[in-house]
Design a protein around this nucleic acid. Sequence first.
RNA 1: GCGCGUGUAGCUCAGUGGUUAGAGCAUCACAUUGACAUUGUGGGGGCCGAAGGUUCGAUUCCUUCCACGCGCACCA
Length: 855
Amino acid sequence: MAELPKQYDPKQHEEKIYKKWEDAGIFAPSEKASGKPFVIMLPPPNITGSLHMGHALQDTIMDILIRWHRMMGDKTVWVPGTDHAAIATNKVIENQLYTEGKTRWDIGREAFMERTEQWYAKTGAEILNQMKRLGCSCDWGRARFTQDDGYVEAVNEAFVRYYEQGYIYRGARIVNWDPKTQTTVSDLEIDWKTEKAPLYTFTYGPFEISTARPETKFGDKYVVMHPDDKRYAKYKDGEMFEAEWINGSVTATVIKDEVIDMKFGTGVMTITPWHDTTDFEIARRHNLDMEQIIGFDGKLLPVAGEFTGLETSEARPKIVEKLQAKGLLVSINENYEHNVALNDRGKGVIEPQVMRQWFVDMKKLKGDTIEVAKKDLIRFVPPRWKKHFIDWMENVYDWNINRQIWLGHRLPVWWKAGTHGTDSEEGNFVVSIEKPAGDYEQDPDVLDTWFSSALWPFATLGWPEPTDDLKTYYPTSVLVTGRDILYLWVARMIFSGLELLKDKKYSRPAIEARIPFHDVFIHPTVLTKKGQRMSKSLGTGIDPLELIEKYGADATRFGLMYQMSYDSQAIKFDEEGIKAARNFSNKLWNIARLLESLPDRATESVADAWIQNRLQAVASEVTNLLSLYKFGEAARILHEFVWGDYADWYLEIIKVEGSTVIAREVFKTTLRLLHPFMPHITEVLWAQAGEPKLLAISAWTAEGVVVDDTSKDIAIFQEVVGAIRSARILLGIKPGSKITIFTENALPLSQALEALAKITISSEKKEGMRALPLQSGTQLFFGSDEITPDSLAAARARLKKTEEKAENLITSTKRIIAAMRGRAAEDKISEKEALVATTEQQLEDIRRSYDLLDE
RNA sequence: GCGCGUGUAGCUCAGUGGUUAGAGCAUCACAUUGACAUUGUGGGGGCCGAAGGUUCGAUUCCUUCCACGCGCACCA
């Protein structure tokens, strides 16, 4: 076997190993697998995107789960795929056009789509290749794209079914309009930014009203106040009055409504139903007139009179000026703060508009979704997300599903020519996948990206056809995702799955057969070390590919997992952690080198039994932690075992005595346990150890052996070594100088002890040997030529300290026992009593040591 | 405003109703030609965010408060 170089170089191995796995075809579910199906759908990244730290974390988690289950013999499959990224790509194309001085309308829909295809071809699905560099074991043959033919069919089918079931309706509602990108935006995709803006108070008839947006006020003809507001008790609901306003006199009506906050401003407000959600609701409740003031281009409409055609920001100061000139301005509060709605993609300022749009009636469609969470048919991990989910679902509002961009899934809706967007819409459309006969044109809008994403868990398996894959792999096992899309995506997959698998042909009458996944694991967000969001534009992002380049994929994976903790919702990412993980992989590498260099030796020692027991404990702990999604804890336990127990102690012993056969077996099982975390290096070392079969498809744990519990021997060994090392420093004995020790008790692993602590064990107590106190009560004497009066004084001080500790322990434990009497359980008390007894024994030994020290 | 999370060594984080609260990194000292300087050994460094309460005993459980982060709602 070739000799291994001194250091592990990931670049030499990772790509080759990955190819080995792919060539062996082990990423597809094994036909021979006897276990249950274990299925994960990759949350599809944007096809044009590139891997960021959030992906790296999420993908590592999924790959760990997948590899672990594959090793356990489950029928394991990880389905990858990409999303068409409608908004992002649409914007890229529009930006291209902008630099050419064109708009999308100039080139037309067909040419636009052609450019999109070119863009997709150019960027490819590069992100999936980046996942391969991380070592992800996806079944690439099953990869799907939200705009491949079958998927488009699924989207159309879903729309038609929803429509036929009465879940989809067309209606005029207030929606979030982004004049910048000329499309609607969902409430979930809005960023709220706090902004300082003057709050103006104006006279409006007999009232005073306040507003931060005077430019919307042209059409206001209702004043609203709380029915219980005593200040305005004399004004009756429906009462009319004349008010002088921006462009002359208006007739206004008094409305009483309980949404008014009596404490805000004057307790009276005028409403602008067309451009404000709350106002819209009030207007609907009281059946009031609504009028559009601001056009879809963000400019004022003719209702604004002399201000027509101005941008809202331009118009505002001019309007204030005019009202002031008219003597209607009462005051300006310059310190007022309010929240401005921005489109989180592109940061356009949202202008609410009333528009005819397509909606999903969520009250109807949510159906059993809440039950599914309440009854834990879908388990949220960590469980606190369950409550968030239920709260949101209980207050869910109707979902606006169409967008006015061009890229995306067209709606399977056909309008009689010239009717779309006019007052004669009603009754003039057909919902159907095929174009109906006659003069029909397709709805120009596309669906919200999340409409298609919502179908991901089953559309990837061939839905709407009742395919074998759908039969075998649905519901999937676990969804791994970030909390930011819990509502946008997770919730929508759940109610979509529950509804769209209802049809008889899927034979899934039970709710639990229709859920899209059993578990939802919400992973933490990766932040910078300082706790900032990682973002390209802020320059705070870290590229995982650079980390892979620098430290290797395994180190990147392990380092991320090592920094993760179950309860925390953020990882403050520290590159040092990846460096530490790189060092860890090097440690593994060198363990393998050492094992190769050792002679074959079968004589067992207490250390062999100890390490085997430790390994079994670690194996069952790691298995348990993985089943609880506690990846960080599992990684830390493995690290501690390998570096602390196995390398620092066990291997030091095995250099001198013990079974190298067992040493190699234990290491191989360790490689199995580490494989999901660090797939490449473990696979390399597994082969190096002479195993012919790929580790990736080997069993998760080796069969356990029953061995004696020798942990006490090891504890004594460790204590003796530690005490001698400390004593050496305390007494100022040079590292090279020899120490001789003697003890009446038999010391375990005496040969290893001599080598490790650099001492000689004497068979008799020699002249000048001094007592070294141990907490375990072992009587130890040591001698050295370098012992001086000074060092003896130090040893005495050390002894004194040990004595005091023992004394304190005894008195405090006695006090605790006294306090516990009659309060605590008997076995707890006897536990403490035993502690007192052994400590008293030790104390005696320690005191005896004083005499010996003074001899 | 409501809810959630976090607060422990210089930094990133473990942990526990009961002895002396731990790790990695950083720091200091020492070691080292045979697995590994991507190493080893040792040391220094902590009113466990603050105040109350429960308890024989609280860093741990409860309450309140403070700081930071996140989500939701409201914003005339």
